[in-house]
Nucleic acid binder design. Structure first.
Lengths: 160, 160
DNA sequence: CATCTGCTGTGCAGTCTGCCCAGTGAATAC
DNA sequence: GTATTCACTGGGCAGACTGCACAGCAGATG
């Protein structure tokens, strides 16, 4: 669980230029190739790096509208609602949050009009009492992780 | 902007097994390597695939607590607030949403106690009038994109 | 009918990966 | 104090992959 400076720099490097391989990374970091390989294996084994899946932009797929919906759930219906929402492709993410039976989900749609259809489909389920939706106008800070990685790794220096 | 079945299957394949290369992908998809290479180039050029950055798990970094905060912003202070929040590593994401001066941000913290520190730092800024926070208890549906890719690509069959 | 675009199948040189090994230095254990 | 363990270094090797190029072919377009 301890992430040192070398791990941090490696993750930053991979985030900036995912195409570089282990060899090039070892050159940039100034360490042996085996070291980078071992670090990478460890980071993946520990679950720090989940994978290197393609980062797909919903807007480029034709879904430029993003919204967040807060759902109020009937007591004991959480599991059913969750299963229901999992079947809706436009639901990109779903969290259960503090508060009685509340959920928060991220939606995308083809247009504002299409968002109505998505919301109807989302809330058209018995366990959902009420929903309030906030449409995203601007993604001021896109999903990021590097600053956190830097903060987490800054504490542990690299001692070769 | 048109994503056909082959593009969709390629993205699915890369999402499942990011380590496979162009050659292996072409074998699995039953098309020529050059085709996969061309599709991949096009998807990236179009912005459908933003990149292949490492998918880092904040929990594994020592930040297991996630929360969403809704911020009410003073008129005309949006830019300043945005700049302020961008300096906080624990702010993973920030959106401006419909409603007068509202923003929604995703936070992580080392613990519930630490979340208080993060929130204090987030709201300790002049432009923010009020904040309400919802702590995530369970990530019922982790951020996903494949179902949307399937839906978007299902409409356009692959015609070789 | 001519053109254009996208896919196929092939080839080649350069590079990288995955794996192995011996040696070294530092921290830890006995 | 000495032995052990661990991580890193630097090197080597066979196999595989990438990036690039080319000609042929089929369907769509004007």
């Amino acid at each position: 669980m301890a992430i040192d400076r070398l791990d941090g720099r490696l993750i930053e490097l991979l985030a900036e230029e995912p195409r570089i391989g282990v060899l090039e990374a070892s050159r940039r970091l100034g360490v042996a190739r085996g070291t980078v390989q071992a670090r990478l294996d460890r980071l993946q084994a520990q679950g720090v790096i989940r994978g290197f899946g393609p980062d797909v932009d919903p807007a480029a797929l034709g879904y430029p509208v993003t919204a967040f919906a807060t759902l109020e759930i009937k007591q004991g219906q959480g599991g059913d609602v969750r299963a229901h929402l999992a079947t809706v492709p436009e639901v990109l993410e779903l969290h259960t949050t503090t508060g009685r039976g509340d959920m928060l989900c991220r939606l995308v749609a083809r247009s504002n009009a299409d968002l109505q259809r998505v919301i109807d489909r989302v809330v058209g389920f018995d366990g959902i009492v009420r929903a309030s939706t906030a449409i995203v106008m601007e993604n001021a800070v896109p999903l990021r992780i590097i600053p956190l990685v830097q903060q987490a790794s800054a504490q542990t220096p690299y001692r070769p």
